[in-house]
Every structure is written in structure tokens, then in C-alpha cells.
């Protein structure tokens, strides 16, 4: 039987909580702990003593992850990586108020990025907010807040989305992107509807979800959440990214795109992004070590330090996506991540 992470399960899924000494007296620490009544906190001097230890097995930790509360040190904002879709935004930036995610996707770059499968929550979000406000005095900001985690899935524990929505409501120059696979809409439903807060739902065919996106909601449930968000008047983005080169690719993805737009009103979405799987060479090397699989050992092509499908494979996959999606969406609403050459 397949289990996805739901709110109740999330509350119970953290068997242990480690708290960095500097985070002990923080108000967000108290808030998070109040949402986790069943755990036993352990105080540690520095969160890196737990998160960055050598000899960890992230795949194993994913099955019983610990939660680590810590204080983030600068920098608080990062320039968007070249492998990420910028949506043509001039000030494409991201921030990490959390590291790691309750889901367990086999292709996820976080496995190559972090030495641990445990989840870190930074409790000093007010420092990140202050930096955002400082930058906004210089120029508008397009900020992705859910790249290295899934903030929507973690919302029942953190309440961070609510905080971010409060900031976005006060700062019209700020545009937030909240990337998620979470189908639980309860945490989103209570947020104000804002023009500058984009909910970006990652969608995949059910065959891909079952095979590679462990503990995530089914396509049906994700589509239900998308429909609710649209119904409430939210800014909704659909992310068909990463597309995977699976057997019967054309048939699986062709049917998938048709299914999505048979249920979703294409005119109601803000835009959509499309990209094939790609990953930095260092991350893939580590992924192969911690999680050998058909994803990590696929014969990719290395180009500019990024492993990706061959140009011929990319062309085939993106052409199919383009042809299918242009039947539903105008070209100015479609953003393709083209292969790096």
C-alpha cells in the first residue's frame, strides 16, 4: 500500500527533534514544537554536528527523518541557478528557510546536495525577511521560497507560508514562488489571495509518481488542489519538470498532458514550465553513491558540468511537450528549459 505524507502523518513522522542552542529561545521554535507534541527534543550545540556528520545514510534517514531547528547565518538570498527556470525574471532569486523535504523523489537533487536525509528548519525567518526588505529598496524581487524543500507540505508544522504571505501582502515589489507537490489544500486555503504569490504545482504522470516520487500525492489529488487554488483566485503555475525519459515516454506524457487539461482550465493558470531532468555533475556523483537507481545511473550526457539527456532525447521530449501544450496554452504562457550546450 502506498502512503503519501499527509498532515497527521507529518506531525508524527519526525521521531526526534534536535534544537541548536542558538534556536532554543526563538519564538518560532516554540511555535514549531507546539505542533509536534509527541517528540522528544535533544539540544545540540551546532545543527551541523547532526546534519553534516560523516557516515550518514540519507536514504535510511528518509524513512525516519529527524527534524533539526537551527539559526540561519547569512547569506539569506541566493541568485537562481542556471539549471533552474527563471521565467524571464530579471531578479531571479531563491532562499532556503528549510533544507530537505518530507517527500522522497528518486531524482531529487537534494540527495546530492545534502549529506543527510533529516529536515532542517531555520527559525530566524525574520532575518531573511529583513534582507528581502533591504533588497526591495533597490529593485523588485522574484523570490523562490520552496526550492530546497516543500514549504506547503511542512506548513502544518511551521506556519512559514502564512508568514511569507504576510510579507508579500505588505511588499508589492516582491513576487513569491511556492513550488510544491503537496495536495493538502487546508494550509493554503487560509492564506490571503495575493497577486504576487504564485503556487507552482509540480505535476507528473501517475506512472512516474508511482515509480519515482515516493510518499507524494497522486496526480488526481494534486489536480484537485490545483483546481481549488484556481477556484480561490490564486496565481497558479503548472510545472512539468522534470520530465523523465521513461519507456513509452511519448504515450505516457501525451496522455498525461491531455488528462491535466481535461481537468484544469488552461485560461485560469498563470503559466507553465517544462524541463527535462538535469543535474549538476557533483550532485549526480553523490546521488549514485547514496542511491543507486535507474535515475542516477542513466547514461546522461555531460555538458558544462550538468548531466542531462542527450540533445536528441531532449529534442524529442521537448518537442512532444511543446506540441501537446500549445494545443492548450498560448506560447507566451509556456516556459521551456532548454538543454545547456
Amino acid at each position: 500500500m502506498r502512503h503519501s505524507v499527509n498532515t497527521a502523518a507529518l506531525r508524527k513522522s519526525f521521531s526526534r527533534v534536535y534544537i541548536e542552542e542558538a534556536a532554543l529561545s526563538h519564538d518560532k521554535t516554540a511555535r514549531i514544537l507546539s505542533n509536534l507534541p509527541d517528540v522528544t527534543p535533544v539540544t545540540v550545540k551546532d545543527y551541523k554536528h547532526v546534519f553534516n556528520r560523516p557516515g550518514q545514510n540519507a536514504a535510511l534517514q528518509k524513512q525516519a527523518p529527524a527534524l533539526i531547528l537551527a539559526v540561519k547565518k547569512p547569506p539569506y538570498l541566493y541568485a537562481g541557478a542556471p539549471v533552474c527556470q527563471s521565467f524571464g525574471e530579471a531578479h531571479f532569486t531563491y532562499t532556503s528557510c528549510a533544507m530537505n523535504c518530507p517527500y522522497d523523489c528518486e531524482y531529487c537533487y537534494l540527495q546530492g546536495m545534502y549529506p543527510s536525509g533529516d529536515v532542517v528548519l531555520y527559525v530566524n525567518t525574520e532575518d531573511i525577511f529583513a534582507e528581502v526588505r533591504r533588497v526591495l529598496k533597490e529593485h523588485p524581487l522574484y523570490l523562490c521560497i520552496s526550492f530546497d524543500t516543500d514549504l506547503t507540505a511542512l506548513e502544518p508544522v511551521t506556519g512559514y507560508l502564512k508568514d511569507w504571505a504576510g510579507l508579500a501582502a505588505e511588499e508589492p515589489g516582491l513576487t513569491l514562488e511556492v513550488r510544491t507537490k503537496c495536495a493538502s489544500y487546508d494550509s493554503v486555503a487560509v492564506l490571503p489571495v495575493l497577486r504576487n504569490m504564485i503556487f507552482a504545482y509540480t505535476l507528473s504522470p501517475d506512472a512516474v509518481i508511482r515509480a519515482f516520487e515516493h510518499r507524494t500525492p497522486s496526480l488526481e489529488r494534486r489536480l484537485a488542489a490545483v483546481k481549488q487554488a484556481i477556484h480561490d483566485g490564486r496565481q497558479v503555475r503548472l510545472c512539468f519538470d522534470p520530465m523523465l525519459h521513461i519507456p513509452d515516454f511519448a504515450e505516457v506524457y501525451g496522455t498525461f498532458f491531455d488528462q491535466v487539461f481535461s481537468e484544469i482550465d488552461a485560461e485560469a493558470i498563470r503559466d507553465a514550465s517544462v524541463g527535462t531532468f538535469r543535474i549538476g555533475a557533483d550532485y549526480l556523483k553523490r546521488m549514485r553513491k547514496v542511491r543507486p537507481s535507474e535515475i542516477s545511473y542513466y547514461p546522461y550526457t555531460l555538458s558544462d558540468g550538468v548531466y542531462q539527456y542527450s540533445p536528441a532525447e531532449n529534442t524529442t521530449m521537448l518537442r512532444l511537450a511543446r506540441e501537446k501544450l500549445l494545443a492548450y496554452l498560448p506560447s507566451d504562457k509556456l516556459f521551456f528549459w532548454e538543454e545547456m550546450t
Binding site: 526526534r16 545540540v44 554536528h49 547532526v50 557516515g55 550518514q56 525516519a64 543527510s116
Partner: peptide
């Protein structure tokens, strides 16, 4: 004597 764990070593 080495196994994987999320506990402190």
C-alpha cells in the same frame, strides 16, 4: 562497527 543512523554518534 558502523551502521547508518540519524542519531548522534
Amino acid at each position: 562497527l558502523l551502521t547508518a543512523s540519524s542519531f548522534p554518534d
